[in-house]
């Protein structure tokens, strides 16, 4: 029970932070990525604020031998810059724009914050299917 409380609170703060910083507005994110258009620096400041916080606070947290409510820290163990890291991140970058061309009359209106939360928040549709693909990739050693 207690172990579920902090994820709920943490998620709540994360959602509030995304809202307050306007990162639930797709045009803000695209505005940052559109470096040759009317550039919007919002995302840079959001990431700056978040990383400033984590760089400082993680020092103190990771100095402890274990977390407050569970036995161990679950941290990534890989250290090397390998091909999956770079190729996967490159694919993620392309998908993250979510502005692939599509005829206008085929569009439907979906509330921006809902769709952004579904996308940005759950990062994203079809995670199950993509996981299957990823298994195939691992087996094929791509």
């Amino acid at each position: 029970m207690k172990q579920s409380l902090m994820p709920l609170l943490s998620g709540l703060l994360f959602g509030l932070g995304l809202g307050w910083s306007q990162m639930i507005d797709r045009d803000r994110v695209l505005g940052f990525l559109d470096v040759t258009g009317v550039w919007d620096p919002t995302l840079l400041f959001v990431l700056g604020g978040a990383v400033t916080m984590t760089v400082i606070a993680f020092r103190f947290v990771l100095r402890r031998s274990q977390p407050l409510w569970v036995e161990t820290f679950h941290l990534p163990t890989k250290k090397d810059i390998d091909r999956p890291l770079v190729i996967g991140s490159a694919i993620f970058g392309v998908g993250n724009c979510r502005i692939l061309p599509w005829p206008r009359h085929h569009r439907f209106s979906l509330g921006n914050w809902q769709s952004s939360l579904v996308c940005r928040g759950s990062d994203c549709w079809l995670p199950g299917l993509s996981e299957v693909f990823n298994d195939v990739r691992t087996k094929a050693k791509f």
Partner: peptide, 29 residues
């Protein structure tokens, strides 16, 4: 928060690339 229109197919394809890319690259933003 301003609403904008989305192409559902773009969302699904984009979402798929996000799901696949983040698993392969071990993380997102």
């Amino acid at each position: 928060t301003p609403r904008s229109t989305f192409a559902p197919v773009a969302m699904v394809i984009g979402g798929f690339l996000v799901g696949f890319g983040t698993r392969m690259g071990s993380g997102c933003t």
